[in-house]
Design a protein around this nucleic acid. Structure first.
Length: 488
RNA sequence: GGUCUCAUGGCCGAGCGGUUAGGCACCGGUCUGCAAAACCGUCUACAGCAGUUCGAAUCUGCUUGAGACCUCCA
């Protein structure tokens, strides 16, 4: 695995190019990913990012790295709204629902946990929340103040972007130039306490109607939106760690500001590799709350999105996402989902076939090269679609062996079983579908199919077709194969 | 308006200068009492125009179209 670890290449958003991945400490990786803000239920687009980073986490584990994976939960913080005001979105949502802030956060945290289970996300090593780390946030703000990169006004603290730009490069990640931004950004209004339009809040003094308030050296208030990630990543991974990830839409300003905060307090960019997952589209447009074109992860399982004629399992949705690269946009369409459903069943059928194959003297094709192609795909910036294509090549060969047209040696059979299973289940995170034989229906179906088989033996096609059609109406498909009749 | 990204066959989607990625659909075949399913095979596309090159989906320029960010968003 060491050899494979050394060949891993990652696209680093900070440089805008692929780089050979070298962890700070050999064999160990610290990874931080920005998690959800729990003022509403995460939608399918949110889930795509978490599924993609789950894939990345899983592959790093498969390569034998020891990974500390931190993904936060945002349960407090003031953001800047379209009017340029700092607002507490969780508090607003809580008020609208006539709940407490903690109540609404807890409600959606439970849902998010459930979604993680359904979509087969491995739990991160730590899932810290902002409210548990107010003290750490305050300490970092104090450090930034002490370093001269922030100023206090009336109980609020702002990051001093102009001062920062004298020593560091603001825009290093997003490529934005502050003087270009200035012309296109709303003007500072008279009441604004900021000295400069690009300054952002580190700490915001309390409003009379705030639901949550914390004490600080600057009086009662709330942390700013960006400081929590700096506090939590630093606490659990150190001042500098290997990978920082998140959705593409967080690149600016959130991640840019995280870099500024880390440089402003500790003098270094927090992460060596910045990774950004791309958005999920519906009809060519980013799925988002503000566009109103979103659906919930549970709706697709229940077939209630209003967009598709039928429901799809979490496994199918996950497989569908694995057929697009994490840095590409992905369009959700019914035809594409149907294609994923059929493709997945072809792949899982082949895995079942693989367990039944008999090993021969020697292989008629290069199994080691096939397995190497799995690693090659994933080592190239986690190219899951190429991996899937290679798994389908394996599927074709497995079926040919099954038909007696190709051969595989006993040793190669062991290798292929191990690697197919590892990449399909451990890396792609697909789940073994429940076998029909386990259901309560199984004994009944055995009986019915037995009766139908008797009719077929007697060439009583009327009866046998009657049973088949009747079952079809109940949603059960009967398949007559060479080795007997199966159903699903 | 500014910054950036993208445009691939019926659909989804890889591709990073020279081997038809892959999946689904379509079509042909094997199997089957007939179907369905399964399996095998077939299907040579890269927005337009110009340029660089022995060679371009891939590099450069222009044109057209779409999207993201610039304000919260995964």
């Amino acid at each position: 695995m060491k050899a494979q670890q050394d060949q891993l290449v990652i696209y680093n958003s900070l440089k805008g190019e692929k780089e050979v991945f070298k962890p700070l400490v050999e064999g160990h990786i610290g990874m931080y990913v920005c998690g959800p803000t729990l003022y509403s239920e995460p939608h399918m687009g949110n889930m795509r990012t978490f599924i993609n980073f789950d894939l990345i986490y899983r592959y790093l584990l498969h390569l034998g790295f020891s990974v500390k994976y931190v993904r936060n939960i945002t349960d407090a913080g003031h953001i800047t709204n379209s009017a340029g005001q700092e607002v507490d979105s969780i508090g607003e949502a809580a008020k609208a629902a006539q709940m407490q802030s903690l109540e609404i956060v807890y409600k959606y945290a439970v849902k998010f946990q459930e979604l993680q289970r359904i979509y087969n996300l491995l739990p991160p090593s730590i899932e810290p929340t902002a409210t548990q780390h107010i003290q750490e946030q305050i300490e970092i703000i104090e450090q930034i103040l002490a370093n001269g990169y922030a100023y206090e006004v009336n109980g609020s603290v702002y990051f001093d972007t102009r001062r920062y730009m004298q020593d560091y490069h603001y825009g290093i990640l997003s490529g934005r130039k502050v003087d270009e931004l200035e012309n296109e950004t709303r003007a500072l209004n008279a009441q604004d306490e900021k000295r400069f339009f690009a300054d952002f809040a580190l700490w915001k003094r309390a409003n009379p109607n705030d639901m949550q308030i914390w004490r600080s050296p600057w009086g009662n208030g709330n942390p700013g939106w960006h400081i929590e990630c700096t506090a939590m990543s630093t606490k659990y991974l150190g001042k500098q760690f290997d990978i920082h990830g998140g959705g593409m839409d967080l690149k600016f300003p959130h991640h840019e500001d995280e870099i500024a905060q880390s440089c402003g307090s500790f003098g270094c960019n927090p992460a060596r590799y910045w990774m950004h997952a791309n958005m999920l589209n519906v009809n060519g447009q980013k799925m988002s709350k503000s566009f109103g074109n979103y659906f919930l992860p549970k709706q697709i399982l229940e077939g209630t999105t209003g967009l598709f004629e039928k429901s799809y399992s979490a496994n199918v949705v996950r497989f569908f996402m694995m057929q697009a690269h994490y840095r590409s946009n992905l369009d959700f369409t019914q035809e594409a989902l149907n294609a994923a459903e059929k493709g997945l069943s072809k792949l899982t059928d082949a895995l079942a076939t693989l367990t039944r194959l008999q090993g021969a003297e020697k292989s008629s094709f290069d199994v080691e090269a096939l397995v190497a192609s799995f690693y090659k795909a994933m080592n190239d910036d986690f190219n899951a679609p190429i991996l899937v294509a290679n798994l389908f090549e394996a599927t074709r060969l497995i079926n040919l062996v099954n038909d007696g047209k190709e051969q595989i040696s006993v040793a190669d059979l062991v290798l292929l079983k191990e690697k197919m299973s590892a990449f399909v289940f451990d890396v792609l995170g697909l789940q073994q579908e429940n076998s029909n034989s386990e259901s309560r229906l199984a004994p009944v179906m055995d009986l019915v199919l037995d009766l139908r088989q008797q009719a077929r033996t007697n060439k009583d096609w009327t009866t046998s077709d009657q049973i088949r059609d009747g079952l079809a109406k109940a949603g059960i498909v009967v398949k007559d194969g060479k080795e007997g009749t199966t159903w699903s």
